[in-house]
Design a protein around this nucleic acid. Sequence first.
DNA 1: AACGCCGCCTGATCGC
DNA 2: TGCGATCAGGCGGCGT
Length: 287
Amino acid sequence: MPELPEVEILVRHLAPLVKSRTIQGVEIRRPRVLGPTPATEITQALNGARFTHLIRRGKFLLFSLRSAADREPILLVGHLGMTGRMYLLPHSAELPKHAAVVLDLGRHNFVYEDPRYFGRLTLDRSSLNRLGPEPLDPEFTVANFAADLRKSAQAIKIKLLDQSLVAGVGNIYASEALFRAGISPRIAARRLKPDQIERLHTAIREVLTAAIDAGSTLPLDFAGDTPNRNRNRLFYYGAAGPDSGFYQERLQVYDRADAPCVRCATPIRRLIQAARSTFFCPQCQRK
DNA sequence: AACGCCGCCTGATCGC
DNA sequence: TGCGATCAGGCGGCGT
């Protein structure tokens, strides 16, 4: 599932491809992904509009555009959910089964596809208000992190998934950060000691930074699944799943149940917290 | 207001 | 082999 690093890599690759391109047509195939924005509204806003900037915020993609009619700025908010992908496809290429939104950019189509339709491409900004600090920016301080953790009785793993605590950490990197910090995923957030909070703060940044660095080395046409299916894609955020060799060596606990801990060889355990899998080393991450 | 729970979705996997 | 049941999970909304 795409978390902060995957979205960051996508944004870096996608930004130069869409910059200054003009939208010549808008096709909404799944209105659901628009959230509260009516299809007619987004179609009218985007038609003829031109991309100016693309940045990441948490797991969100923020597309800035300038409208054709009044040249007013437009903010298009994207989220990949669990299975979303965004890429350019040659205009002549066949669209994927689950294409949710297609933007005609001339030679290429900008495609947002999402088999589960959990993601969004919308003009609605309300989700952004709920986001906490960017973990890789100076605004993410140990002091504020500690203050927020003190307010919560939730298990720290569950709390890390709260996007208002820190933006962009998902199920994979929550487990990875806790392993790196040597902290049990089950301990209540408010029970963390200052030195643990400090280590976790550092671990979050390290885990995310390492993943971005690893992703940056991928070729532009990298694809996590079969090459043939993706050969037409100008860029593709590869589903670098746990099966891909690239990904595997980066993840020390996630999806490694029963495999030996990289540090102490104790079998990694899987547990369910808030209906989500958590992976941890019972030896290195004791309460 | 923190927190638990449900619904949204489809593809992959499981069990018979 | 085939097919229905189960699982996976980010996030918003709702109730407590």
